[in-house]
Simulated scan of single mutants.
Amino acid sequence: MKYYVTFQEMGAQHGRPIDHQSSADFESDGVGLLPNVGDYVEIMPAGNPDAPKYSGRVRSRLFRYVGDTCRINIVVEDNPKDDWGKVIKE
């Protein structure tokens, strides 16, 4: 099975996720780590300074199976109430 993973940003000012490609999007034949709902993620552009940069908590994951492929959409929600200082110490 072939997997296509995409991330979408959802901020407090948006009523729904934003459709733009993330530098974290990837394709796989079965190997790849997926964050669970409730996990915190930070998406940083790599090699493309115009790629979106955002962080937050995973709000939802949608698995769409079509034939021998699976498209996985992961929505990352920015929550101003989250304290990143309690998530990780850098």
Results as ranks from 00 to 15, higher is better:
Lys2Cys: 06
Tyr3Ile: 00
Tyr3Cys: 00
Tyr3Ala: 00
Val5Ser: 07
Phe7Pro: 01
Phe7Ile: 02
Glu9Lys: 06
Glu9Asn: 07
Glu9Ile: 02
Met10Tyr: 09
Gly11Glu: 08
Gly11Met: 03
Ala12Glu: 15
His14Trp: 10
His14Phe: 14
Gly15Trp: 02
Arg16Pro: 02
Ile18Gln: 09
Asp19Gly: 07
His20Phe: 09
Ser23Val: 07
Asp25Asn: 08
Phe26Gln: 12
Phe26His: 12
Phe26Glu: 10
Asp29Tyr: 02
Val31Lys: 15
Leu34Tyr: 03
Leu34Glu: 04
Leu34Pro: 00
Leu34Gln: 03
Pro35Tyr: 14
Pro35Ser: 11
Asn36Gln: 12
Val37Asp: 09
Val37Met: 08
Val37Glu: 15
Tyr40Glu: 08
Val41Tyr: 01
Val41Asn: 01
Ile43Gly: 04
Ile43Tyr: 07
Ile43Thr: 05
Met44Val: 15
Pro45Asp: 04
Pro45Phe: 06
Pro45Trp: 05
Pro45Met: 03
Pro45Asn: 02
Ala46Gln: 15
Ala46Trp: 11
Gly47Arg: 06
Asn48Cys: 02
Pro49Tyr: 04
Asp50Trp: 05
Asp50Arg: 04
Ala51Ser: 01
Pro52Asn: 05
Pro52Lys: 03
Tyr54Gln: 00
Ser55Val: 08
Arg57Trp: 07
Arg59Ala: 13
Ser60Trp: 08
Ser60Ala: 14
Arg61Ile: 12
Phe63Gly: 04
Arg64Asp: 15
Arg64Cys: 09
Tyr65Trp: 11
Tyr65Phe: 10
Tyr65Arg: 15
Val66Trp: 08
Gly67Pro: 01
Cys70Gln: 02
Ile72Val: 06
Asn73Ser: 12
Ile74Met: 04
Ile74Trp: 05
Ile74His: 04
Ile74Gln: 03
Val75Arg: 03
Val76Lys: 03
Val76Asp: 01
Asp78Met: 05
Asp78Cys: 07
Pro80Tyr: 11
Lys81Cys: 06
Lys81Glu: 15
Asp82Trp: 07
Trp84Phe: 14
Trp84Ala: 09
Lys86Asn: 11
Ile88Met: 11
Ile88Glu: 10
Ile88Ser: 11
Glu90Asp: 13
Glu90Cys: 11
Glu90Phe: 13
